[in-house]
Design a protein around this nucleic acid. Structure first.
Lengths: 136, 136
DNA sequence: CTATCTGTTATAGCTCATCTATATCAGATA
DNA sequence: TATCTGATATAGATGAGCTATAACAGATAG
C-alpha cells in the first residue's frame, strides 16, 4: 500500500494515516483480511515514531475497521461488503456531511456540481471494487 | 441567530462557531449583508472568552465568508448567490469530500443512500433559500 | 535455545493548539 | 463624557500531538 504524508498539514499524522487506510479500503485496494504493515515497519517507512502509527491503528480499531492480534498484527475487519452500518451511524455521519456541503454551497459551488462530484467519488469507489471481482 | 455549543466535543469551540455560521448561511438564515453579533456580545451569550469568538470570526474572514469593519462589525460577505467559487476551491474541497464518503462506504452505507442523503441535505439548503424569496 | 520481530505498556520531554484572563488603545456612538 | 466596538498584546493553564527510550511477553526463524 502506497502512503504519502504531508508533514506540513494541519491534519495530525495519525489522522492522515487513518484517512488513507479508509480511502484504500473504499477504493478496494485493501479488502477484508488484508494485513497492514507492523507499526514499527510503517513508522520506519514513513520516518516517524511508531507510537504515532500505533495511535492511527488504535483509532481504526476503535472504529471497528481493523482488528489487531498479537499474532497476526493489524488486519482489515471491515470493507464495503461487510454488512450494514451500526445503528445511528449514518445519522451521525450526515451531520458532518451537512457541514461540508454547507461550506461548498456558501462558496458558490452549484448544487448540481456538488451532487456530480459526490456521484463521481462514489463511482470511483465502485469501479475499483468491480474491477477487482470480474470473474465471480 | 440561534447557536448552541458542545463544550465536551473534540471539535474546538471556534471551529464549532465557524461551522454553525456557515450552515446558517447555507440555510438562508443569514444572507449577504447580515450583521453578526459583536465578539464580546456573542462571547457573553455563549459564556466563553471573547478571544475565542474573535478567532472564529477571523477564520471566517480568512475564508472570505465575512467582512469585518471597525465601523459595522462582522457582516456576511458571501452567501450561495455571491458568485462562483474561487479557482481550485472545488477540487480541494473534493479531497475532503472523498475522505468523508470513503468512511461511510467502509462502514457499509450503500452508495444510493449516500447520494440520497447528499441530495436531501442540499435540498434542505435550497428549500430554505426559496422560501425566503417567494415573491421575486 | 538464541536471536529477532511483534504488540503492548509506561514514562518523560518538547512543541504547539486551545482557551482563558487582563489590559490597553483608538474609533464610533449616544 | 461615557460606553460600546474592534484590534492588539501578554501571560498562564491545560491538553494534544509527536518523539525518545525502555521494558515485557508472545511468536517465529535460525
Amino acid at each position: 500500500m502506497l502512503l504519502t504524508l504531508d508533514l506540513d498539514s494541519e491534519v495530525p499524522i495519525y489522522q492522515q494515516i487513518r484517512d488513507r487506510v479508509v480511502e484504500a479500503i473504499a477504493d478496494g485496494e485493501l479488502a477484508e483480511g488484508s494485513a497492514l504493515p507492523s507499526t514499527r515497519q510503517l513508522a520506519a517507512d514513513l520516518a516517524i515514531n511508531f507510537h504515532t502509527v500505533n495511535k492511527a491503528y488504535d483509532l481504526l480499531r476503535q472504529e471497528g475497521i481493523i482488528r489487531i492480534n498479537r499474532k497476526s498484527g493489524a488486519v482489515i475487519r471491515r470493507d464495503p461488503g461487510s454488512g450494514p452500518p451500526a445503528p445511528g451511524y449514518a445519522d451521525d455521519w450526515q451531520e458532518r456531511l451537512r457541514t461540508l456541503l454547507a461550506e461548498a454551497t456558501v462558496h458558490g459551488v452549484p448544487g448540481e456540481e456538488v451532487l456530480q462530484r459526490c456521484g463521481g467519488v462514489l463511482t470511483s469507489f465502485h469501479d475499483q471494487r468491480t474491477t477487482k471481482e470480474p470473474s465471480v
